[in-house]
Design a binder for these strands. Sequence first.
DNA 1: CTTTGTGAAATTATTCACAGCA
DNA 2: TGCTGTGAATAATTTCACAAAG
Lengths: 229, 229
Amino acid sequence: MTNRGWVTLPRPMPHHGKIPRPTAKRLSLYLRELESRIGQGETTISSKQLGQALGLTDAQVRKDLAFFGQFGHPGIGYPIGELIARLRSILGTDREWHAVVVGAGNIGRALLAYGRFQRKGFRIVAVFDDNPRVIGSDLAGHTVLAMSALPALVRQQDVKIGIVAVPAEAAQAVADQLIAAGVPGILNFAPKRLDVKNAVSVVSVDFSVALEQLAFQVSLGFTGSLDEE
Amino acid sequence: MTNRGWVTLPRPMPHHGKIPRPTAKRLSLYLRELESRIGQGETTISSKQLGQALGLTDAQVRKDLAFFGQFGHPGIGYPIGELIARLRSILGTDREWHAVVVGAGNIGRALLAYGRFQRKGFRIVAVFDDNPRVIGSDLAGHTVLAMSALPALVRQQDVKIGIVAVPAEAAQAVADQLIAAGVPGILNFAPKRLDVKNAVSVVSVDFSVALEQLAFQVSLGFTGSLDEE
DNA sequence: CTTTGTGAAATTATTCACAGCA
DNA sequence: TGCTGTGAATAATTTCACAAAG
């Protein structure tokens, strides 16, 4: 059974053992909004302001932030800079993560061109494919490598993230190879659930699912946003 | 306040007024698994099998499916074909949806090349951009149009989905133009919450958020999947 | 014996509401 | 006054567990 509901924080985090899953998902959203505001020169923010920007209640914001320390100031709000530093440290984006892309097709190509990865601390260090016609070709500055080169590269470059950008039929096999090579995190773009036997972390991004959710809402005439929860 | 928690089904759906939001999100996953199985020649499936494939309990699957009719057979399971037809009808993917892409950059390009959209019943009928240097150029068979042409095209082609594939700074303005043009659904790829004043439906896909979730889990040593709920 | 459909119970998440600080 | 932090209350969701059906 997949671990659900709670996420355990490592020891060095002061007296905050567990974070509910929905909270964990909102952390990125808080960070995004805070980064945008500090860029505008703002230095503090209240739970109400932050909630408003994200479509959440102020109480929700406070509860979420309370999970990892209390450094809001009554009557003032939260110091944006500190909050950003803390969120980055919790989310792990204060470190640099080496990633590999498997699959030199459309999605792989788009990911390599997508500058935002670098800015968030993720560095794509290699691209793999198992199609002999693609291996050796150049993709946005990377020579496409054969899958057989994966384990050595993962070891040498300390790769932590494997991005699965292959068709659904090949996705499970690729995931198995990534796991075998020792990659602890998988970002899955294939429209297929990956069975990772609880050995690694997986997050999936599926356009078709997103599109279906949207079609569903539109056909119901439902209005509002289904993305911030 | 954004509508949350319930989604109201239209009249012709027999005695099933409301579906909880988490259920609505799982519908796409059920459909995907069922389509894969019918392709293998299977004709029925039990809640236990379906749950196992998706990392859910059998009770959860049964509760979800019970929301839109009861056509499982005790001792047998659910007829896959019927279930697929019903899910497609509920999700709206038994119709064809016309979509436009706004933003002729990397993401826009990748979406046009991504064949899966067509297969799911979504047809991209036009691509827009506001950069004069891009307008008029060809993108995967589409001549990139100026934003000023949006309202007329939306009307003529009965466009139901607008795909926002522009940088965060431009996203809100693009959303406003789509809403003004009468597009009822927005798929947002910009890393920014869109304020749509409850006028339309929005679903967001954010790579950075996904990556941060993954980094978070990996740094916690959390294993398992955070995508099927 | 298997599997559905579903109330009832348990769990999880959100909102309320207010004491206390700036 | 404005705002945080947090128990208590409420609401939403999942799981249990079992009667009824194939």
